[in-house]
Amino acid sequence: MFEFLYELLCGQNPDPIFASDIYPFVGLFTLVFAFVFTLVFYIVLGRSKPIWDKTIHWVITMIILLIIAFGFAYNHAQTVTEEEENSFFYTFAMVNTLYAFIYYILFSILLKRFSIFAKRTPF
């Protein structure tokens, strides 16, 4: 699934290690991370106290997630391919950031109803 998602936007990479190792791991990690971030925002914090529940907090949480998604994708591609520089890494990291954003939005729609203090955040 992740191979399809990444190749849809990045194009196919001739190195088979992307399809076999990098895409599944980065894709799953990003998906789980996006879920954990929304879970913490809407359920853990969003049901305990009204301290991290406004739109600005939701945006900050998302920015942190996106930075992690970008950094992790870039770093993991570097580590697995053992290459220092590659323009594809940048494209891949950007696409992963976009998917992290989409996951975050989807999980927000899914989980916000279970929140107490953030059930109207951000929409």
Partner: peptide, 13 residues
């Protein structure tokens, strides 16, 4: 104010 926000939120839910 924090107490009221917390309680109002929980009670409404």
């Amino acid at each position: 104010e924090a107490f009221l926000k917390t309680e109002l939120g929980k009670l409404e839910d």
